[in-house]
């Protein structure tokens, strides 16, 4: 049964006697609130500390990075590490990392675009048309995402070797699209289901063809859904590590995650560079997700409430 607790009453209208919280004395409520705040603050510190530490590391001079005891505050800020991310040491043009970042942008961007471009019409077809064994088909499509990519890395590697796709950006784009597609279909189908088919019926009776009806009426209404789906697909492609590290080796094809991981190892580790690279790597996705944050909520809560 739907219950609605109306807490906003207290204090709303002066002049009306408000009988106070039902059954719970005031003081006990305050203690509970402080406890909640303390707990949340603790959790926040635990979760954010690594990020904050990484940010600081990326801005510290090398001597501060290795300082003992570790310096939390009161260090000199330098942007050298960020410079090193993009420019070759010694000042001779773009660094290798810069190339890796470029590759990441290309691969993630194109695979997301492709997965969305193919996924939206497929989702629409699944939503609108009676297809034989639709539920089984959809389950099969979803099931490909049950397994972690690492499970199929070796067969893919062998396949790619025969096709000459090893160590190519194209290879990565294709495999990321393949992994994103089931997800985009599933998520977009949910969004398409929410748009009543009657708009398309009305458009067809108005005189448009089925396809015109889709483009004119349904597609504009799907934009929030497409945004949400694209963000999730982008996050997967951008962060993907296992397939990238197995299927690429040279700098020209490698994306950022394996490259940044490659910075750790050997005799001395340039932690400043690692931290700066990680920050640069995280920034675009955070920004993108922030821009479409409203649509993200819709994507996550889709279909949760049944009327």
């Amino acid at each position: 049964m739907a219950l609605q607790v109306d807490d906003a009453v207290a204090g709303e209208t002066p002049g009306h006697a408000h009988p106070g919280r039902r059954g719970v004395p005031r003081r006990a409520g305050a203690v509970r609130r402080w406890f909640e705040i303390a707990l949340l603050a603790f959790l926040a510190v635990v979760m954010l500390f690594p990020v904050v530490w990484m940010l600081e590391t990326s801005l510290k001079e090398n001597r501060d990075v290795y300082a003992v005891p570790a310096k939390l505050l009161g260090f000199d800020v330098t942007f050298d590490h960020y410079k090193d991310v993009f420019i070759q040491r010694g000042g001779s043009g773009a660094s290798d990392l810069a190339t890796n970042f470029k590759n990441s942008v290309l691969v993630a961007g194109l695979s997301t675009a492709l997965a969305t471009l193919l996924g939206v019409p497929a989702a629409w077809a699944y939503s609108r048309f009676p297809i034989k064994m639709k539920k089984d088909q959809l389950f099969f499509i979803l099931s490909t995402r049950f397994m972690p990519p690492v499970v199929v890395v070796i067969p893919i590697f062998l396949m790619y070797r025969d096709l000459g796709l090893i160590d190519t950006k194209l290879g990565l784009i294709l495999i990321y699209t393949a992994f994103n597609l089931p997800f985009t279909i599933w998520m977009m189908k949910g969004f398409v289901d929410e748009v009543p088919g009657e708009y398309e019926d009305a458009a067809m009776l108005d005189g448009y063809s089925r396809l015109e009806a889709f483009f004119r009426v349904t597609l504009p209404l799907l934009v929030p859904g497409i945004a949400a789906t694209a963000v999730f697909a982008l996050i997967f492609s951008w962060n993907e590590f296992v397939l990238a590290i197995f299927l690429t080796s040279s700098e020209s094809a490698r994306t950022a995650p394996p490259a940044i991981a490659g910075l750790i190892g050997g005799t001395t580790i340039d932690w400043g560079l690692v931290a700066a690279s990680a920050m640069v790597f995280a920034a675009p996705v955070l920004l993108f997700a922030f821009l479409v944050r409203k649509h993200l909520v819709a994507g996550v809560t889709l279909g949760a409430v049944r009327r």
């Binding site: 009657e198 019926d201 009305a202 458009a203 009426v217 209404l221």
Partner: peptide, 10 residues
């Protein structure tokens, strides 16, 4: 056709 839910383009 006039639909039960009107189907007006929102």
């Amino acid at each position: 056709m006039v639909f039960q839910s009107y189907a007006l383009y929102p």
